[in-house]
Design a protein around this nucleic acid. Structure first.
Lengths: 306, 306
DNA sequence: CGATCTTACGGGATTCGTAAACATA
DNA sequence: TATGTTTACGAATCCCGTAAGATCG
């Protein structure tokens, strides 16, 4: 292994195939003496003559015949192996594990993953939908390659690529007094009973934070685990609820309305969060590209919608 | 194939195994920066990072994991292939076809082949026993690697390694008048009925030649194909016969005697005959070595016998 | 004489090792 | 600070191409 080079094998195969040093040299894009030297070195390393050269004819020796089998096998093997790796490098093959916070798992993540899958048909995609913190943990521990989630504060070991802003708003019935306001301020929502996500949700943390910042103690009427439940309660006129608008993408909002809150709109920044310690796979790089692109499209669509 | 070198694969595997550039460098007998450069070049060629290096820890990237599979496979393959070829080069494995003229096929050839087989247990030996000319033809056409036969005249395309002299003599009954002579001359054998090999035999040609040279027309009483037949006829007192002494190696000579003929002994030179156009396989070289050695021993044994 | 392989040799690229710089726990 | 990787750079080596030489048909 230490001695014989791939070039020499390549050259040997060319000479074996053509049974001519000159033709083989042309095949290898080499001068004939250079090719000759390659064969010579290979023979020296192996300790045996591989070709019988006569002025008019080149033929394989017994050892040459044996080496031909070995060389062909090695050549095929390495070509296949490198092709496979190239597929992996170019992103044609591989495995990508995406973790997504609940609001992202419903629309944004699938949208990006669909594009990646379209570009690279043969790959192995996986989506974990977990709460924001858990999603990021998956990235930290290496189970997931990327998390789609709100920006984290403690992120020294993470790379956070900002994608778009997810504005916080309030959802209420269409016949609710708030629905008539053009712009909703924090003080406007204070009087009504609130339905909130339970404490493990990052949405809840965000909402609590905003209420605190605006000097209002939140007194929740209900704590729920799923957005559907919250909307059901709101439809039943049991209260109103604050949500980032990304949660409303695939939701039937008939009878309900959504309003952003605050004069200076409140938002969380959605990021593609990856490990800083692990270098991105080509597939991950492609995924991040698509994230950026889809994020731009999301902004455009918002512009049109408003 | 054109780009990645075996050294790079070797280096990559070392780093994969140790997960340390420094240790890997020691394994590869390389300075650490040189090894680093190798990895770097490999990564450039593949277009992807293979290792994540942090000051305290080196780990494989996703692409690295994939390349590890490929590299291992290639490494194993090439190592096995080269080992196999090395076996062949060193003569441990291979195929050797020996052609031997009748007198050689009985004793000399088996003796040499036994030694070759003892040295190299796993090889594929073949023995063709044919008349001298046919044996040489087998070498010319490439069917046999070597012929053990009397020297040929037309041998421009052959290499003839002289082994020993095969003296021509006469075989007669122990009670035959010739048996009482200390030295037998050509004129002494003339009066008796002769039993000869048929014309396709090289022995017959040699005998005819010698009779002609000594001015005696040969009038054969019998023409036979096999030496056994000739000896049977001689035992039955139906005549005498001329033979090279090599024919008598494994023969029961009770009741018979052999005498060399001529004041200046007549002989044919037994050679190991190989193709000049095909370079010898390592196995053939070993065979020729053993031929030479056994030939020397034959001479010694003759010295002891006389 | 012509086609083909080998030898000789100079130039350029590759690769190595030493030394210094750099990064992180 | 100590460990371990990268960068910088001069030197040795390897490898190629051109030109001349050798060999056989």
């Amino acid at each position: 292994m230490i001695n014989v080079s791939l070039r020499q094998i390549e050259v040997f195969l060319a000479v074996s195939a053509t049974l001519s040093f000159s033709q083989a040299a042309r095949l290898c894009h080499l001068s004939q003496p250079a090719l000759s030297a390659n064969v010579k070195r290979l023979e020296e390393v192996l300790g045996a003559r591989l070709f019988d050269r006569h002025t008019r004819k080149v033929s394989l020796t017994a050892v040459g015949v044996e080496f031909l089998k070995a060389a062909s096998s090695v050549s095929e093997n390495i070509e296949a192996a490198l092709a496979r790796v190239q597929d992996f490098v170019s992103g044609k093959r591989g495995r990508l594990v995406v973790a997504a916070a609940p609001s992202m798992a419903a629309t944004f993540a699938p949208r990006v993953m669909a594009r990646v899958a379209a570009d690279h048909p043969e790959l192995d995609l996986e989506l974990h939908d977990e709460l924001s913190d858990l999603s990021v943990d998956l990235v930290r521990q290496g189970t997931a390659d990327v998390a789609l989630a709100p920006a984290m504060d403690d992120a020294s070991d993470l790379t956070q690529k900002q994608l778009f802003r997810d504005y916080l708003g309030v959802v209420c019935r269409a016949d609710h007094p708030l629905a008539r306001l053009k712009t909703v301020q924090w003080r406007d929502v204070r009087p009504y009973p609130h339905i909130v996500m339970n404490r493990s949700s990052s949405v809840r943390q965000l909402v609590d934070q905003q209420f605190a910042r605006n000097g209002v103690g939140l007194r929740p009427a209900f704590e729920v685990a799923h957005v559907g439940t919250m909307l059901g309660l709101i439809s039943a006129d049991l209260g109103i609820g604050e949500l980032p608008e990304s949660f409303l993408q695939n939701i039937d909002m008939t009878g309900l309305v959504y309003r952003r809150i605050g004069s200076k709109a409140t938002y969380r920044t959605i990021c593609a969060i990856t490990s800083r310690t692990r270098s991105p796979s080509p597939l991950l790089a492609a995924f991040l590209e698509h994230c950026e692109q889809v994020a731009k499209e999301v902004l455009l669509e918002r512009g049109k919608a408003s």
